[in-house]
Design a protein around this nucleic acid. Structure first.
Length: 557
RNA sequence: CUGCCCGUAGCUCAACUGGAUAGAGCACCAGCCUUCUAAGCUGGGGGUUACAGGUUCGAUUCCUGUCGGGCAGGCCA
């Protein structure tokens, strides 16, 4: 287990050397931990406790032997045995000063790793069908997906962002007939208004532009309206392009950019769906019953077999999904991550079963899924009601307009994806410490302001002596800064961007506490330079962390 | 009824994936004060980690059951 923590790594090496003498043949998982209680030092090792059983020795006695063999190091002020057999390390201030130098030398590279170097991952997210503007749930996906991509890229992965959608299914047919009804002058509530139609006002906008023969250009297509109201195909094409363009604007406002748009219909036209079905049949994983074709998904842990091809000859929705994921695999993505709402969790077993059943050697558990729950919106102390039937719902762009791209991103990333989130619009607008985005961005702005006041650039601090950094707030801040790389690594590995959000809030808290306790621009030059260097390291880390979340770090606020 | 997810301070959430006395922020209480950016700062009270068992040196974390909440359970997507 590599920790990626600069100081833990060095301590692990030291303990490892001692273990080679004390217990050369007993492999222990060398983990250096940070004790919760400050009295237990800066770091601890439980190696002696792990070895007690296999070596049949008292853990405290083992700890003593390890201590004796521990190489001397300028990092360690004191190492002692405590509790059941922990070895606790108390570090010298100089050990922490190395962090500041390391951060300032690495700059934008601080926190980057190489765990994914040479590996390709495809992240599929948003994937909204073009039937309306993006809503806040899509916003959560967009924030999660983009942050995850940034995190993987920071670990060296070759990342592709993909948006998958259907431009030809039942929902799209409904969209087309809704626009057609509007183009004919009908409104929701009229006797002739189709019962299943979408009622939103935006449908009328599309109809008006279609009649006016306008041209719309989306990121992946361009269509000019014919204006012929009886041509449902033409209406469908125009409406799809129109709403794709609307979604592009939503995504642009949210600063999310996709590498590819993948069409479900292309899986049919390219023959991929048929090929996948033939493969499943040839492998004996299917059977006919009641006029339908079934897939034996129970062979792969599903609780019942699933219909692939309905008795009317069309495929159920997960068949193209299987074909799509075969394509992902064949395109060379050893890893695929899908971000979806928890309401779709039923598809996971089916898609994975289909991928195993085709027998192409696709890794078990491919693809990964990151599921998220719904988002509710509070404004003025009341919940903003979302009613799809009435055609009124809070769009992603509403939320961005009411607050800001940064607030929406930060807030939507601040909770574990699988817990329900209530977005508080008033809190997102608050300019005080209750607002976590403000709190973090303000820490950055404060540092920038101090440097402006000082009047020279951070580069002039290259040779700054850091010995004056010994105050408790300074040590706490340096400890926090040292944890940044492993936080980024964990957030990527566990598909958990919220870990980085919590980290940044804590880092900002450490900074503000220090700022409140000490003045930086003091008369003593050595102290001043040391503090400015630490502030600069803090600034670099905040900028790097916010960038991974897709949040800006303004210099003034 | 079945499957998946969740349950931690009054509220919103953490807890480095099995470590030592479970931590922050709101809110509450008590002081302080306006300084490089101000809309505050410092301290304090607050917990049987839903409940009951189990696994082991050690459990918020892993296993079983119960209770409570969310989402699913279509030849819909």
């Amino acid at each position: 287990m590599s920790s990626t923590h600069p100081i833990k790594d060095q301590l692990a090496l030291l303990v490892g050397e001692a273990l080679e003498v004390v217990a050369p043949d007993s492999p222990v998982s060398l983990e250096i931990e940070r004790p919760k209680n400050a009295l237990h030092g800066d770091f601890s090792s439980n190696a002696a406790m792990q070895l007690a059983r296999p070596l049949k020795q008292n853990p405290r006695a083992l700890a003593q032997k390890i201590l004796v063999e521990l190489p001397a190091s300028p990092l360690i002020a004191k190492a002692e045995i405590a509790g059941a057999g922990f070895i606790n390390f108390h570090l010298t201030p100089a050990a922490w000063h190395g962090i500041v130098r390391r951060i300032r030398a690495a700059g934008a590279g601080y926190g980057r790793g190489n765990a994914g170097t040479g590996r390709r991952v495809l992240v599929e997210f948003v994937s909204a069908n073009p039937t309306g503007p993006l809503h806040v749930g899509h916003g959560r996906q967009a924030a999660l997906g983009d942050a995850l991509c940034n995190l993987f890229a920071a670990q060296g992965w070759d990342v592709t962002r993909e948006f998958y959608y259907n431009d030809a299914g039942v929902q799209i047919a409904t969209l087309a007939s809704s626009v057609q009804a509007r183009a004919r002058g009908l409104k929701p509530g009229d006797a002739a208004w189709p019962e299943t139609a979408y009622n939103g006002d935006y449908i009328a906008d599309i109809a008006a532009d279609f009649v006016a023969k306008k041209t719309v250009r989306a990121d992946d297509r361009e269509v000019t309206a014919s204006g012929r109201i009886d041509d449902l195909d033409a209406i469908r094409e125009f409406a799809v392009a129109y709403l794709r363009h609307e979604q592009d604007l939503d995504l642009k406002a949210f600063a999310v950019k996709f590498d590819h748009f993948y069409l479900e219909s292309s899986l049919y036209t390219s023959g991929r769906v048929d090929a996948a079905v033939r493969k499943l049949i040839a492998n004996g994983k299917t059977y006919e019953q009641d006029g339908a074709l079934w897939l034996r998904t129970t062979e792969y842990g599903d609780d019942k077999d699933r219909v692939m091809r309905k008795s009317d000859g069309s495929y159920t929705y997960f068949v193209p999904d299987v074909a799509y994921h075969i394509a992902k695999w064949e395109r060379g993505f050893e890893r695929a991550i899908n971000i979806q709402g928890t309401d779709h969790h039923g598809t996971i077993a089916r898609v994975r079963a289909g991928l195993q059943a085709v027998g192409l050697g696709i890794a078990e558990g491919y693809p990964d899924y990151l599921l998220h729950t719904m988002v509710r919106v509070m404004r003025g102390g009341e919940e903003v009601k979302i009613s799809k039937r009435a055609g009124s719902y809070v769009t992603l762009r509403d939320l961005i307009d009411w607050t800001s791209k940064d607030a929406v991103r930060f807030f939507l990333l601040s909770r574990k994806p699988d817990t329900e989130y209530v977005f508080d619009v008033d809190l997102a607008l608050a300019k005080n410490n209750d607002n976590p985005v403000y709190y973090v961005q303000y820490a950055h702005a404060r540092i920038c302001r101090v440097f402006e006041e000082w009047g020279a650039g951070a580069a002039t601090l290259a040779d700054a002596e850091l010995a004056p950094l010994v105050a408790v707030h300074e040590l706490a801040l340096m400890q926090r800064l040292a944890e940044y790389p492993e936080t980024v690594a964990a957030a990527a590995q566990e598909l958990a961007p919220h870990l980085l959000v919590h980290y940044l809030v804590a880092l900002a808290g450490d900074f503000h506490a220090w700022y409140n306790a000490e003045k930086f621009l003091v008369d003593d030059t050595a102290t001043k330079h040391a503090r400015l260097a630490l502030a600069d390291a803090c600034r670099i880390t905040i900028v790097n962390g916010l960038a991974l979340l897709g949040v800006d770090a303004p210099e003034t606020m």
